[in-house]
Design a protein around this nucleic acid. Sequence first.
RNA 1: GCCCAGAUGGCGGAAUUGGUAGACGCGUCAGACUCAAAAUCUGGUAUUGGCAACAAUGUGCAGGUUCGAUUCCUGUUCUGGGCACCA
Length: 793
Amino acid sequence: LKQKAEPIELLIASFEKEGSVVHGYRIPGKTFTAEEWKAMTEQDQLQILMEYRLAYCGYGEVNWCEALGTVLANDEVVNGVSERGGHPVIKKKLRQWYLRITEYADRLLGGLNQIDFSESMKEMQTNWIGKSIGAEIDFSLKGHNEKLRVYTTRPDTIFGVDFMVVAPELTLIEQITTPEQSVAVQEYIAYVKSRSERERMAEKKITGVFTGAYALNPFSGREIPVWISEYVLAGYGTGAIMAVPCGDERDFKFAKQFNISITNIIGGAFDGEAANPTRDAVLQESGFLNGLSMREAMDLVVKKLEETGSGNRKVNYKMRDAAFSRQRYWGEPFPIVWESGTAYALSDTQLPVNLPYVDSYGPGPEGEGPLANIQGWEAALQGSGNLLPLETNTMPGYAGSSWYFLRYMDPHNEQEFCSKTVSDYWGQVDLYVGGTEHAVGHLLYSRMWTKALYDLGFIGFEEPFKKLLNQGMIQGSSRFVYRITGTQTFVSKGLLNKEDEYEGKQTDKLHVDVQIVDGYELDLEAFRKWRNGEYVEAVFICENGTSLKAGEAVSGAVYLCGSEVEKMSKSKFNTVNPDDLVHKYGADTFRMYEMFLGPVELSKPWDTKGIEGVHRFLKKLWRLFYDETKGAIWTNEEPTEQELRILHKAIKKIDEDTERFSFNTAVSSFMICVNELSDMNSRKKKILEQLLVLLTPYAPHISEELWHALGNQESILDATFPLFEAKFLAETSKNYPVAVNGKTRSELTLAFDISSEEAEKLALADPAVQKWLEGKPPKKVIFVRNKMINIVV
RNA sequence: GCCCAGAUGGCGGAAUUGGUAGACGCGUCAGACUCAAAAUCUGGUAUUGGCAACAAUGUGCAGGUUCGAUUCCUGUUCUGGGCACCA
């Protein structure tokens, strides 16, 4: 198959001509002939087409809070209850839209080679896509007709399987559980359901239960117990694994925990103390594989499985399709109407579908979005007078963020999202500045979206961003209050144990607005009024143990908040507003200070200590031009050599720093330069002009003002461009010393027990050094520390 | 639990390819100017010992490679970002 998006009309035409065969391949899914296709009802046809659409409809689980009557994001669920109100949250199946990003998995991997992203970013995306090659194997179940299908990356270890583990969500469990194990299994499944995904993820202790059923090894016929455990996920592979404790760390721990005996198939490579995940051992106790290396066995096992029909080679991706609908008001509405459970797309002429005005943004019934409450949220399909209900879900944030850069190229186009001529002209985004928090969200969606538009011929490039610069996040200091789960009682931080428990009771850790916390002390009255009085009835157990109800106050009873440094975000209530600083120091100072804070790619808490220094620098710069009493003081004299040297040193340094995005060191260089010029009382116009050109990107307002003061008519931005051109034209000759230790080099390093001149004489006299120099005099001799010498040719 | 980063003086950070650790800024101490303050300027400021010259120690922790490690390797702790326990 072509591995690219095509218009759905092509698929329909293909079905009409050849049935369920496309481009000569029998497509996965339902099989039918062209005649059968034509005989189907439109609804049946649409249902089949849905299996192949890039955006399709399916069912998925959401966090449903009955008390709030709404769907919650993972963020809004704490300890299995809603952050607001502390109501129980359960998993609920809802109809959802998805984007078939998994079909792009291979191309998203391949594309990483063409773009300039950091290695860690590429690694994160690669791991997220998670391509693995293995096999699916069917295990017969003793006394049942059903088979247990597992996915494994290590079919070569099949003779080392000591137990099977099935995800608790699998329906097969009901059928295979023996009566004796039934109670234990039901209890375990109930336990898993009560746990949030986050809890299941962070859990260290191993849990599981035996179903009473046995699977049969397809080669040896050995009986293998079938277990259930939450560490196996229903959504990945087949939701069941074959466990090989001698080769897999987690399987090993599971076997130890439940006293399952371990078969050793790798002889001395397994010491009984820890699993050894090697791929290089020679197999033992492995039937027809005995004596083979694991790599050889891999192919042989798969071949044998395929011959006997009990398995096949299989490529798996851990990435799943992207959920594309939200039960919210704010989001792009879908141009979709529903009739008898079938989705129909509106025609182009009916676009755009605009959000309706509403009086209330409250959630709709049964987990539907607010649009479900709107009378008349409906549209007629073209050529029909019948009004049909419009889709009530809206699109998520990434529906817009995935392609906004294209719209920015052609923002006034009423006919297309962006004309091909325009996107051909501008091309890819040259440099994209964004944080690592988007590694596996936005940056992956946007790449997929761009590939789809490219496939359909709307744009001429496949990757949205040529180069990515990961800037660090400015972090905020958050404050937390601790609510005893299921109550409105809040416990002061100091009274909690390490697990944030109070007298054995679990607490929910909730963000509180930093504005109503003084240091760590919560303003109780402000907290009661916060969020429209949601916490009016709150009871506080203060640091000294005093319990305070509404209206009560006891001197000395304070409530202390917990704190954490984390990314600055409205939802964490830890943001700071820069307006005051801009007002006090000006935008140039603020801008330069942010650059001076540290490396762009590093995250750090926001802290205004030191902004004074940058402000002083700009004032000092100003004083190079103006004197309080004398006014303008620059001169038209020719600069001296020393002055030029100071300027050019700064130009070189700032140029290099800017080139490698090291803005903080560039700012340092400005400071050094201005200090030196001040020290020597240098106020030559020719020097100052060049300094301003250099400074423009860092302090544009001041630069522009002083630039005009010097008598220049045009904007300093126009004057800055020739410099950039010159920079690109300049050939930099790299004459750096190279490391020692046998690498190719133009430099030799020797160690001595003596120092300086004496060492130089000895070194140059040494026959080995002379041979190395080939009779030529050394270009440079550098003393490094006092016992080392570098000779450069 | 998994993936990806980061850790250097009192503080933010610098050291561009393995070669004088601490540039630049903040803070602080001392001084100049001032009736005084602000602003500005000058000098000191990693730690320990010493009046000093100087010596020893020092880049989260424990090892390793190297004549030489903030830099490379192995393990580990803590902090941050992401998460879907990925077999």
